[in-house]
């Protein structure tokens, strides 16, 4: 079933972003926006600059030109933890979980910005520290229920299979209760069932929590099915932007994917 929804409010706007590493231009003059509440996909062939784009959005890379406006505020260079404080969470293309920690602890780290008690109370583990720990545990357990990973709660994530690790990583991002969730290839390397599960989670996150989602994905079936709008990058340039049906018929996009004789 195809969803068609209308969004008015812009959550994040990217204006004329250019990013280069030495002589390599990773992104040149890219502009697009992400509306509040939508699922926005970024697609493109390998090396198109998709991950660089996400890294710019969450403050890990600093573009040489252009600006990013988030919630109406044009922002200058920011550190990644500042982006996290403003409500941007993400997952990574290559899983970036804390391998030595359990599933529960990994998801608990997602709530780090909300945990405020000082060293002294934590050392004694009484009063505010103990209360805070239990309060956040409750929030984390809701996410564990939501993602159906109760059985691996106490397992070190290094021992988990790939598909479950991806799910735990999504859980860690969700624990921060972000307004904007960036997913870098959430379905890469998964089999069809795992992909269906992950699609369901992404859609549910969007529906139930109202989280705006920006995702990078290579599986065109998934992208066309779940996203509201798609932006296409190729060699660091934007070659298409629109609803899935427009993108499917866009000649430049077809050429980029299938190759074309010049």
């Amino acid at each position: 079933m195809k969803r068609s929804r209308v969004f008015n409010e812009v959550l994040l706007a990217v204006e004329n972003i250019s990013l280069s590493f030495g002589g390599v231009k990773a992104l040149s003059d890219i502009s697009f926006d992400i509306a509040k509440g939508e699922i926005r996909a970024i697609i493109g062939p390998n090396g198109a600059g998709k991950s660089s784009m996400l890294n710019c959005i969450n403050g890990f890379y600093h573009p040489q030109q252009g600006a990013i406006t988030y919630k109406g505020v044009r922002r200058s260079q920011m550190r990644p933890h500042e982006a996290a404080e403003q409500g941007i969470a993400r997952t990574f293309q290559n899983i970036a979980l804390f391998r030595g920690m359990s599933t529960l602890d990994n998801i608990m780290t997602g709530r780090n910005l909300r945990m405020k008690t000082g060293l002294f109370w934590q050392a004694l583990h009484i009063g505010p520290a103990a209360r805070e720990e239990i309060e956040h545990r409750q929030a984390v357990e809701k996410i564990i229920d939501f993602l159906e990973i109760q059985h691996i709660r106490k397992v070190p994530v290094g021992q988990l299979p790939y598909g479950l690790q991806k799910r735990v990583e999504l859980g860690r991002a969700l624990a921060a209760q972000p307004e904007l969730l960036l997913l870098d290839e959430p379905m890469a390397g998964m089999n069809i069932e795992e992909k269906q599960d992950m699609c369901r989670f992404v859609l549910d996150v969007n529906d139930e929590f109202g989280t705006t989602i920006c995702l990078i994905e290579h599986d065109m079936g998934v992208v066309m099915d779940i996203s509201d709008r798609v932006v296409v990058l190729d060699y660091g340039k934007k070659i298409g932007d629109g609803v899935p049906d427009e993108i499917k018929g866009n000649q430049a996009v077809i050429d980029a994917y299938l190759g074309v004789s010049h």
Binding site: N58, F60, P80, A84, A96, F98, G100, N112, L113, R172
Partner: peptide, 10 residues
């Protein structure tokens, strides 16, 4: 375990 990811989540 992963200092870059730790910085990105806050």
């Amino acid at each position: 375990d992963m200092d870059i990811a730790a910085e990105i989540i806050g």
